[in-house]
Write a protein that binds this DNA or RNA. Structure first.
Lengths: 246, 246
DNA sequence: TACAAAACATGACAATAGTCATGTTTTGTT
DNA sequence: AACAAAACATGACTATTGTCATGTTTTGTA
């Protein structure tokens, strides 16, 4: 599932290297699609910014000026209600686009907040330049359409789970997704590389932290998972899948 | 909010008229964007099909061969769980696109079912022709990107409501949306033109039919709404908005 | 108009998940 | 290593929603 591009052993420390073809950029499908010279041009219009835990990339309500791509690390998209409850809509990984969406078209503002989960690096581009690039590159536009379509399907699948499933089923769904999207092999099963506390998980599936803790404890007792945020391992993916789709 | 195009009093009975510029098509932004001759060409590649209640436009799991546009009537997008529970993800109205999404790209199948709510008319186009059209028309591609972005925002907002709100708040949200998207003025408030039973509403907000009935009864007692499916009228939109965003 | 089917309604009870309170363990600093 | 902060854990109780059962009203159609 995970393709890992071969890479020389040099470290990806480049802060913003001479805008050539630095490491890490080949994880971004949208850029791969462009011709070498268009890619060069686009990279010239993009700025790389680093964030760490506690920062905000943007907040709900901020004006939408930029188009973004995750280069390194994970970013969470969050919405909050007036009484302080939060829900995490999506965890973006390297290569994910954000604000490619329509809120960026008219003068609208961001419908949610984007927060780094740990150290991240994000590429940004003025939305005017982004639109211009899309108009000039039908392949890039098609890629964005494909990407947005996938995101839409994903969001609708998530809505279905929230609408129909019990808390334990939702958590099982989440774990299955995590295993597929950010899992690596581990002697005891599949290790989830994104670091998520029980509270994070709770916010992702629309339950309280206590409920997430209780259910995860049950999963642990039933040998479906082990460990917590720092080292979460899925031990029985098929049973989780079964529970998720019951 | 609703623009109603002037139209001569002739009835829109045309089954598939000589592919000129028949009535109704000017409600479809995507087609309006094309040049007259491109539009002509696209219309030549599209087929109009009529469906009525009980039909399926396509079912979850069917292969994705076509791109669709709603021309007349309302279409609901539904997903079901294995144990027969259903959830309605979205009600499509004239001008709405569907299957413009990525499931149509690779060989994937439809992630949900599309069912007419009453008599509808749908335009269809082979997806190859659709992709070709998008490649040739940057404006059309941008419109699809804008449209998909809006759909994504909408789906995420829906997920948030499902994750954080109580049943009465979800129903209030639904009623507010209905008033905005399909409401017309009425002596007693805003009449919702889409015909929705309590069961339909329940499926749209992820609660049981009984819960929807009880809450709607409470709303009626509190003079927030009157009537049922055939003639649902929102009497106090601001109170509903307040409840939805509490 | 008559009649069946669908929609609406309501009560009693059960299951699920939330709330609040308190305590332990883990983690990440100085 | 020491410490504070965060994360994890668990019990007792409550609120919300689901389930099942039964009955009435509305709607569509022969």
């Amino acid at each position: 599932m995970l393709k890992r591009p071969k890479r020389s052993s040099q470290q990806p420390t480049a802060e913003r290297p001479s805008p050539g073809a630095p490491a890490g950029l080949n994880q971004i499908p949208l850029l791969q699609i462009l011709s070498a010279q268009d890619r060069q041009k686009v990279l010239g219009e993009m700025t790389e910014t680093r964030y760490s835990k506690g920062d905000f990339i943007f907040r709900e309500g901020d004006p939408t000026e930029y188009f973004h791509i995750v280069k390194e690390g994970s970013v969470k998209c969050v919405k909050s209600s007036l009484d302080g409850k939060e829900c995490t809509l999506k965890v973006l990984m390297p290569g994910d686009l954000f604000c490619c969406d329509a809120s960026a078209f008219d003068g609208a503002s961001h419908p949610g907040t984007a927060q780094p989960m740990g150290d991240v690096s994000v590429l940004r581009m003025k939305k005017e330049a982004y639109f211009k690039m899309l108009r000039a590159n039908p392949d890039a536009a098609m890629e964005v359409i494909r990407y947005l379509g996938n995101r839409l399907n994903e969001a609708q699948e998530k809505a279905k789970v929230l609408a129909l499933d019990r808390a334990d089923q939702r958590l099982a769904s989440l774990l299955v997704h995590l295993a597929e999207r950010s899992g690596i092999n581990d002697p005891h099963g599949i290790r989830v590389t994104v670091r998520l506390t029980r509270q994070d998980m709770a916010n992702m599936v629309g339950v309280t932290t206590e409920t997430a803790i209780r259910i995860m404890a049950r999963f642990k007792k039933d040998r479906l998972v082990t460990g917590t945020a720092a080292r979460l391992v899925i031990r029985d993916l098929s049973k989780l899948k079964l529970l998720a789709s019951t």
